[in-house]
């Protein structure tokens, strides 16, 4: 289990070298999107329209934050459950997305796409909304404002603490981690 400091957007070699259990402190620019925003991104790709952000090397964070207090950039901002985005994630990986940040298990199609497209799935600590808030230095709604907490935001993050839970070698920490500690 290695420890890395990485910058987003991710380089192909950065995403490819990561393995489950690795600890990563991520800085740079990431984008937020949940179910409704994913649906719209895929619809625009299907119509050959440009998506609202450059997907090449992009890292997408599945989060619906609480509203910011006055003078603050964002509220509590912990990850949401990833499986609701499973229907859309493979398509985004084919378009160049290199990283996903969320929590919870993924389906086989997502795991296969991670291998095929050399992408990585980072786990953030679910429920740690206040802690993660401190890593976000800038937030700006860049698309789908009508979706409220589910609008696409461009975030600047510094040392966002993550654990690699899915890698491009097909590793899945939700399976391997449990296997190690299960008492029959």
């Amino acid at each position: 289990m290695a420890e890395y400091r990485l910058t987003a957007p991710l380089k192909e070699e950065d995403a490819a070298k990561l393995r489950i259990g690795d600890k990563v402190l991520l800085s740079g620019v990431i984008y937020t999107a949940r179910d409704a925003a994913h649906k719209r991104i895929v619809e625009s790709l299907d119509k050959n329209e440009k998506p609202p952000m450059d997907l090449k090397g992009s890292v997408i964070y599945y989060v619906g934050p609480t509203p910011p207090r006055e003078g603050k950039v964002i509220g509590a901002a912990g990850p949401t459950t990833a499986m609701r985005m499973d229907a859309y994630a493979p398509r985004l990986m084919q378009e160049g997305m290199k990283g996903m940040i969320a929590k919870g298990k993924r389906n086989d199609a997502v795991k296969k796409a991670m291998v095929d497209c050399k992408a990585v799935y980072f786990g953030a600590t679910g429920g740690a909304g206040a802690l993660i808030n401190r890593c976000i230095t800038k937030a700006e709604v860049i698309a789908y404002e009508d979706l409220g907490p589910e609008a696409i935001r461009k975030l600047e993050v510094v040392d966002f603490p993550l654990i690699v839970v899915g890698d491009c070698a097909g590793g899945d920490l939700y399976i391997e981690g449990r296997k190690k500690w299960e008492k029959k």
Partner: peptide, 19 residues
């Protein structure tokens, strides 16, 4: 992380969890 999160939230500016 959860303990640290609870301590930050208890300052009253950011909720413990976004949900």
């Amino acid at each position: 992380q959860l303990k640290e999160n609870a301590a930050i939230a208890a300052k009253g500016e950011v909720p413990y969890c976004q949900d």
